[in-house]
């Protein structure tokens, strides 16, 4: 059959069937793709809780940085109060290290450097460490690593 005859017949019934068929196929395809996308989307996550207790305020000396690498958080106590920093580098997610002698926080992956208040000292990271929520609960400090707070937020105790 040559293309001219298909085109001539394409005005009426054949055209309708052609588009209905294609439309049905497209709808089914889009639906299938959506179901697949939802299928690979995990519904339950067995991940460590983002909120955890770190200890009583008295156990941290003034002007100290306490690193908890297992839970990827720095707890800093200044003369004003407490704040918590996420130890996850804002560049590409490596765990940073606090070096006491230099009074700074270093990322081993790409050489970013941060001050102990979280601010950026040297790239390639483009922003400082995330300051995360900290609150006092039953006389104990509780940190939530998923909740980011203002850069100058301090918990006064």
């Amino acid at each position: 059959m040559d293309s001219q005859r298909i085109e001539a017949a394409g005005s009426g019934r054949r055209r309708f069937l052609w588009f209905t068929g294609l439309g049905a196929l497209g709808t089914a395809g889009a639906g299938g793709a959506a179901v697949m996308l939802d299928f690979v989307h995990p519904k339950v996550l067995f991940e460590p809780p983002s909120s955890f207790r770190v200890g009583r305020p008295e156990s941290f000396p003034v002007n100290s940085v306490t690193a908890d690498y297992a839970r990827k958080v720095y707890l800093v106590r200044t003369e004003v109060g407490f704040f918590a920093l996420s130890a996850v580098c804002t560049h590409l997610g490596c765990i940073t290290r606090h070096v006491e002698e230099e009074g700074a926080i270093f990322c081993p992956c790409h050489g970013s450097k941060f001050a102990v208040d979280g601010s950026l000292l040297m790239g390639p990271a483009t922003r400082g460490l995330r300051r995360i929520a900290i609150r006092l609960e039953d006389g104990e400090l509780v940190v939530d690593s998923e909740l980011e707070v203002e850069k100058d937020a301090v918990l006064r105790v």
Partner: peptide, 9 residues
């Protein structure tokens, strides 16, 4: 060990 980044990674 997710808590210990080797240096260099």
């Amino acid at each position: 060990n997710p808590n210990k980044t080797p240096n260099p990674a």
